[in-house]
Design a protein around this nucleic acid. Structure first.
Lengths: 204, 204
DNA sequence: CCTAACTCGAACATCAGTGTTCGAGATACA
DNA sequence: TGTATCTCGAACACTGATGTTCGAGTTAGG
């Protein structure tokens, strides 16, 4: 499929331009048209179809790329040490990923088989699950609510921040602290005191 | 536009059937087709177009209807007394509305002018805002985060619960308490103790 | 029972997007 | 410089949706 050998240099350059343009367009509008993407890539529609047989194939390629970038960011997070601090670090990094790639995930969900996107998502999902589980065992996070709900809450708040950011309601650098402060409180057990979040830990 | 006089009884019955069917179909799939809706209403497509000139007009009618139902539910909520209890009551009612009408709001957003849906939404928005503001003044809710963020968090958590419910991950009667417990904690100021939520107050 | 109001299927126009075909022209690269 | 590779616009087929038109048939209700 993606064999690069025997491809001429200009062809390879075009493929790259198309992928760049696709990522760019789809980040703005998950429903971006093939025509729009081709134009943004400075390439004819026919040329695009020469490299990607269908819209789904193109989106899959973009998704693959974005998945790699996501993993790179998230693999770098230190999830050891104090659970609250670990959560805050992980959440800050995850927000970065969500806010950058949310629209593309949307496109992938519209176009690709459900399983394709879920598989990739699950990796990051499990990492968060592990941190929360550890925090629960350590008594740092509440145990009165199902863990999958806590995870849902995490992701939702990040999507909230992403939306609020693109709507201009919050500033980029405020998002991390905002999410962290909210989550840490939300994860505190009834009767316990809400810990104060160290802003320095958030501003990575 | 919606003059009912001079309309024959069977015509009125059909309009009602169409609205019912539309609300039903759109609740499942916000992109439901006119053809699907007509069929669900037991009516020909042409008949439907006889009553609603365009898809937008139909969706607007459904939206209007649903708005009235929402207001009815939310106007009944007692938002006086202890702010935490008031929040919990309001949130329980709002969840009911969100989970019932979320898909239709989606359809309205896709098809109607943005301002049309925002106007209606703002009414309920302000009610929540007032409760939170009162809670902040009373020292029950944190003041270290912008209020519009707290409101965002409210709505997001309700959407989370709605999704988790339709995905079968949580039970209907669990949703209210789940949201309430999470929100009350999320709204607690750092350094304060998270109050325990009375489950009886939630199960309305 | 008569008529105006209503229903409804079939067929058509339109539109926007996807994907294909053709053929002429440009370009990498050996 | 020669050729296989690639580009690219124009034109086309297809799909699925919205919305319209026609004309024949049905029904409410005075």
């Amino acid at each position: 499929m993606g064999t690069t050998r025997d491809q001429r240099a200009d062809a390879r350059r075009n493929v790259a331009a198309i992928l760049d343009a696709a990522q760019d367009c789809l980040s703005t509008d998950p429903q971006a048209t093939i025509a729009q993407i081709a134009q943004a890539a400075g390439v004819g529609r026919v040329t695009l179809y020469g490299h990607f047989k269908t819209r789904a194939e193109l989106i899959d390629a973009v998704f693959k790329r974005v998945s790699a970038q996501s993993s790179e960011i998230l693999d770098a997070v230190d999830t050891s040490g104090d659970p609250t601090a670990a959560l805050v670090r992980l959440v800050a990094a995850t927000w970065e990923v969500v806010h950058r790639f949310n629209a593309i995930r949307q496109a992938a969900e519209d176009e690709l088989p459900e399983e394709r996107v879920r598989t990739h998502h699950d990796v990051h999902f499990r990492r968060l699950d592990a941190v929360i589980a550890r925090g629960q065992r350590a008594g740092a996070f509440r145990r009165d609510l199902p863990r999958h709900w806590l995870i849902t809450v995490c992701y939702r708040l990040m999507h909230s921040a992403a939306d609020d950011y693109s709507a201009g309601r919050i500033k980029r650098q405020d998002a991390g602290p905002l999410i962290a402060a909210t989550l840490v409180a939300a994860f505190t057990a009834p009767g316990d005191r809400v810990p104060k979040v160290d802003p320095a830990a958030v501003l990575s």
